[in-house]
Amino acid sequence: MYSQGLIGADGRSEETQAFLDAFQKRIDAEEKIEPNDPMPEGYRRTLVRQIGQHAHSEIVGMLPEGNWITRAPSLRRKAALLAKVQDEGGHGLYLYSAAETLGVSRKQMTEELLDGRAKYSSIFNYPTLSWADIGTIGWLVDGAAIMNQIPLCRCSYGPYARAMIRVCKEESFHQRQGYEIVMTLAQGTTDQKAMAQDSLNRWWWPSIMMFGPHDADSQHSDQSMAWKIKRFTNDELRQKFIDATVPQAEYLGLTIPDPDLKWNEEKNGYDHGPIDWDEFWRVVKGHGPMAKDRVKARKKAWDDGAWVRDAALAHAEKRRARKMAAE
């Protein structure tokens, strides 16, 4: 389950100040907003964009892991990976459904993903080069996503919050199975441990980029926080994730690839080195090593499945007509 700081939302609203104030009062009172409730257009747009990006991330996120199902090293690992990838598909569905309650159609969202207009988490534009990457994705990528998603369970928009509760319930198995894979490698032969370290080296920075730009550069954060779509800032969540993850790496005897990483007694957390935001924006804008492959794979799956969708609809229509005739 994968989300990332919102990219490129437009939270402007043009309703009267009285309307916006009344809405904000409901939000401040921790009232949940439900689909048919009046809401500012900016609130609706921000949610459609965020939930859509989140749903696309789940669906695209199936690709780098699905890539390893046939090569899993044992039946136990294969069964777990299959179940995880199936969960991600389900999570995509819960999220698409939540977005649909805001008046956007599934078809529209699918089209936006396939023609490259919609964004998804930049993390999936990196390749899965070794089996260790499946472990690292569960441990770090799902771990980062959980940090993001737990506060989303209290999001002000009811259908999104409900979807996230379901997702979070299913998610912790993902992170645990990932950590177990990395642990097995880290405690294995020298080569296996090296494989785990190589994987951590490649995924660490992309994982901490998943929380999105620094607060000072995150233009949509303030409005999302005021509307209680977001509960913590990007930097707060990133800090929580780093603080939780460093001891987990130490336990495995693996080294986090950041020479500037050190404990800061005063803030009771770790300081980290500079993040390469040029790389982040390159990858978000579709220049990641796998960006073209990901959308191509989705497009192929969609096109190859067209006859199935058409046949199912034709069959449903035929049954309906027969039933009508019999009545």
Binding site: Q86, G90, L93, S97, E100, R106, E170, A312, L313
Partner: peptide, 24 residues
Amino acid sequence: HVGSLHAADEVMALNAARDVYTRR
């Protein structure tokens, strides 16, 4: 109520609901 899904007819809707909403 647990959620929603897209399906061509009620048979496929029930199958998909079982796959997506009753995995655990």
